[in-house]
Structure formats: C-alpha cells, structure tokens
Computed example of a mutant assay.
Amino acid sequence: MSGYTIGEIIVWLLLAAILGFVLGWLLRQQKYQRARAAAGRTAAAPAPAKAVALSGGVESAGPVNARKGGRAPTAEYTIKGNRDSMYFHTPGSASYEQTIAEVWFKSEAEARAAGFTPPGTGGAAKKAPAKKAPAKAPAKAPAKAPAKAVASKAPAKAVARKAPAKAVATKAPAKKAPAKAAAKKAPAKAAAKTTVAAGKFPGSAKPLSGGRAPSAAYKIKGNEDSMIYHTPDSPFYGQTIAETWFRTEAAAVAAGFRKPRNA
C-alpha cells in the first residue's frame, strides 16, 4: 500500500470531483454559446429566401419586416415601406424621418416590384375604385322599375286628392255653427262679470279682490274706519286700499264720508 493516509486520499478524491464538475460546466457553456450563435444565424437567414424576379433578370430580396421600433434589419436596407398606404419612402423623402417603417427594401426597384409606390401617387387608394365598380351595375336596374309604377299610379293620386277637397267644402258651414253659439254667449258672460255688489252704505259698492274698483264707473275710494273718501286728485289716492267705492263725491258725502283735511 502507498504511503498516503486515508485522509489524504479523501482530499484528493474531493479535489478530483470538483475539477470534474468545473470541466463539465465549462463544456456545457461552450455548447450553449455555439447553439445560440447558430440560432441567431438561422433567424437572419430567411430574408434572402424571399427573392423576387425583376425585369432584366435581376433578383430582389423583397420586403423584409422591420425590427423593433421600425428599425432597419441591416444597413443595406434604406427604403422604408408602409403596408397601409402602400407607399415607400427614400432617404430624400420629406416624410422619411417621421415614417415608422413596417417593411424595408434595399432599393426602389424592390419596393416597386412588391407593389409599393412613391408618396402622392395613389398607393393603396388606387385599388378602391375597382371594388366599387360592380356596385353601380345592379343599382341602375331597379331604379327604372319603380319609375313606371309611380307613373301608372299618378292618375289615382290625382283623383284621391280631389275627393277630400269636396268633403271639406260641404263640411265647412257645419264647423262655423259652434262659433256663432259662442258669440251669443259672450255678452251674457260679460254682463255677469260687470255685476256690481252693493256696499253697506247707500250708493256704495263693494270692492273686488285687492280693493280694486268693481267697474270703471266707480272712481271714489272710501275708508270705512276713518269715514274719509279720496278722489283721483287726492295725494293719498294711490296708496289707499278702498273698503268701499262711490260713483261721485255727492254719493260719498250723502253716505257720511268726508274729504281729507289736507286735500
């Protein structure tokens, strides 16, 4: 048996195990890095696969989707494309900087081959009239049919309009009858309203609500508490609330009323 003790052998075994673990971890990391590099290369590879044959036998890679934020996939792609408007923008375009690209092209030829056009040339708007064209044909056919139907019914409408006219003419006198009856009742109501209630003094009349005169003929206000009457010329006429009314001063004096002392 060798000169190593059991303790030393255990230490060497532990060191060998640690070394093996570290070497295995390093190998796994190298494999992982190589796999990531291969995946990155395959992700960038599909762009050239979309080759489009152009005039003159030149091939184009076609549109390439923009990266995050609309950035170009590589420095070779300088033409921005917008799928909504079908416009492409070159670096010299006025709206180049503010346009967020959805796809990128290497040249104008590639953009035109993919159906994109420069700004202001119509873009996607050119396709709209083609969709609306079929809608015009069916619209004309039904338009003529109703026109004939209306023409054939025209005499019937004319006859229908004349008939109500005669009916209204015959009923017109009947509607005026209630108006005459109302006119006859009007004087009766007016007479009822002008009825004057006699006051408690001879020749006097009771006031209306608020002390108002019972009729225009009564112009002399009487105060029953003070037994004073006021004519329209009296300085207290406007502020006096009449408790009784007289037609004339003579009627007020006969009932025992007197003029104000300062009048």
Rank of each mutant, 00 (worst) to 15 (best):
P260C: 12
K50P: 10
P73Q: 01
T194P: 14
L27K: 06
Q33H: 07
R83E: 13
A141G: 09
R28L: 15
R71E: 06
N82G: 06
G56A: 02
K221R: 08
T240D: 12
G62Q: 02
I18M: 06
T90K: 05
A109D: 11
A139F: 11
A17Y: 01
T90Y: 02
A35I: 00
R261L: 07
A154C: 02
G120Q: 06
K175A: 10
K153V: 01
P46R: 10
A172T: 04
A172C: 04
Q239E: 15
K180E: 10
T99C: 08
P138I: 06
G120F: 05
V253N: 14
A263V: 03
A101N: 07
K219L: 05
V253Y: 05
L19W: 03
Y4W: 13
R28Y: 10
S85Y: 07
K68H: 07
W25N: 12
P164A: 12
K166F: 08
A111D: 02
A101V: 00
A156G: 13
G40W: 07
Y4S: 15
G3P: 10
G256V: 01
M227A: 08
K259P: 08
K206F: 00
Y218R: 12
A43Q: 12
K259V: 04
F201R: 13
R41V: 11
A72D: 05
I10R: 09
K206T: 05
I220P: 00
A198K: 14
W12C: 11
A179V: 04
S152W: 05
A49C: 01
A197H: 11
A38G: 00
A198G: 08
T117I: 11
A128E: 12
A198T: 08
K166L: 15
A44N: 05
A53R: 10
F88G: 03
T74Y: 01
A143R: 03
R161A: 13
Y4A: 14
K221D: 13
V64E: 03
T5S: 15
K200P: 12
A101M: 06
P232I: 00
A139V: 10
G211F: 06
R67G: 12
T5Y: 06
Y32W: 04
K259L: 09
A156N: 09
Q29V: 02
A154D: 01
R112E: 13
P119D: 08
A183Q: 09
A124T: 09
G20I: 00
N262H: 13
A43V: 05
A109P: 05
V22I: 11
L27I: 02
F201Y: 15
T74C: 00
T248D: 12
Y229I: 07
A242H: 10
P46M: 09
R247G: 11
S234M: 04
